[in-house]
Amino acid sequence: MNFEPVQAPPFTRLDAWFRSPLGEEVVRLETESVRRLLANTFGYYLIQVGATNSFGEALASSRIRHRIQVPIEPSDALEPASIVGLPDQLPLSSDSIDAVLLPHTLDFSANPKAVLGEVERVLIPEGRVVVVGFNALSAWGLRRVLWRSPGRMPWCGRFFLAPRVEGWLVELGFDIEVREALVFCPPIGSLRGRRCARMERLGKRFWPMLGAVYVIRAVKRVATLTPIKPVRATPSRLLAGRAVRPTTRGTGHA
């Protein structure tokens, strides 16, 4: 009787891929971008949901006082400041978090829109979210389509278009502040060297929509509602000592 080997959870395998030669170079570029986008973000609480071990430098460089990881699965390698929870059911109070980092969390979640909905719930007004994801419209996205590798990282993830993710954020009440494109070299060999460095410079300038990775920063906006004063009922006028008979016209009632 044959049994298929049980695979580790996707975020655990993603962390392992980030330790490979190609994954290390990808996460290096992503960390630089996340560090830039978090540089001017302040507050008390920053949480990272999903992949945990590879973005420690980006979190450590943040000016936000408390940095908390929210992994999907418990592990002996977790940092002390960790809370295990599902990305679409965060064990956090509403309007309590200043910033959220989603490093490829949408790529490996069953319901990415629900994840963003939870992020909107836990963020304070004017709180910020930084989303990192693989771009479907890229050489990496083409590699995923042409040579499907079930279970193999990162090709088993769901690659989205950056405008689609931005559309979800706007629907939830976010304003898009920044979008950066990274990793313009194809997933062959190393991403280091003069050739890839030149492709990074040219890609960011001339064809940013083709980067293999997008990084989006958005801010949660809360609409200011102007309360409408209730209309006071006008007392019945008296004509010659008699009350005016009320009319039913326009009330919708017979």
Results as ranks from 00 to 15, higher is better:
Arg143Glu: 13
Lys220Trp: 11
Ala136Cys: 10
Val231Asp: 06
Ala218Lys: 03
Ala181Tyr: 07
Gly157Pro: 09
Val244Cys: 00
Trp140Leu: 05
Val132Trp: 06
Lys204Cys: 01
Val131Ala: 12
Phe206Ser: 07
Gly241Tyr: 02
Thr224Tyr: 07
Thr224Trp: 12
Pro187Met: 11
Val178Asp: 15
Gly141Asp: 04
Ala243Asn: 02
Gly151Pro: 12
Gly167Lys: 10
Ser138Cys: 05
Leu202Lys: 06
Pro187Trp: 04
Glu177Gln: 15
Val130Asp: 09
Thr226Cys: 07
Val213Ser: 01
Ser190Arg: 03
Val170Asp: 08
Val244Asn: 00
Gly141Lys: 04
Gly151Thr: 13
Leu210His: 07
Ala218Tyr: 04
Glu180Gln: 13
Glu177Leu: 15
Pro208Leu: 02
Ile176Asp: 08
Pro208Gln: 05
Ala162His: 09
Val219Ile: 15
Phe174Arg: 09
Val129Tyr: 11
Arg217Thr: 14
Ile176Asn: 10
Val213Met: 00
Ile176Gly: 09
Val183Arg: 02
Ile188Arg: 13
Gly157Asp: 10
Val215Gln: 04
Ala136Glu: 14
Trp168Ile: 04
Leu239Asn: 01
Leu169Arg: 02
Ala197Gly: 12
Arg195Val: 14
Gly211Phe: 06
Trp155Asn: 07
Arg232Ile: 08
Pro187His: 07
Val165Trp: 03
Gly167Leu: 06
Pro230Lys: 10
Val244Gly: 00
Gly173Gln: 05
Lys229His: 14
Ala233Tyr: 01
Pro187Ser: 07
Arg242Asp: 00
Ala197Ile: 03
Pro235His: 00
Glu177His: 13
Glu200Ile: 02
Asn135Glu: 06
Arg242Phe: 01
Gly203Glu: 00
Gly173Asn: 03
Pro154Cys: 06
Cys196Arg: 06
Val213Lys: 01
Arg192Ser: 08
Arg194Tyr: 10
Ala233Lys: 05
Leu238Thr: 05
Ser138Asp: 01
Val130Gln: 11
Leu142Glu: 06
Phe134Ser: 07
Gly133Glu: 04
Phe184Thr: 06
Ala139Gly: 11
Pro246His: 08
Ala218Ser: 08
Arg245Lys: 04
Met153Asn: 08
Ala233Phe: 05
Ala139Ser: 10
Val231His: 06
Ser190Cys: 01
Leu172Glu: 06
Leu191His: 02
Arg192Pro: 01
Ala233Ser: 03
Pro186Ala: 07
Arg242Leu: 04
Gly173Val: 03
Pro163Glu: 05
Leu202Phe: 10
Val131Glu: 12
Arg143Asn: 10
Ala212Gly: 07
Ala218Glu: 03
Pro150Cys: 11
Glu171Tyr: 07
Arg195Ser: 12
Ala139Phe: 11
Val145Thr: 13
Val183Met: 05
Val131Ser: 13
Asp175Glu: 15
Gly157Glu: 09
Trp147Asp: 14
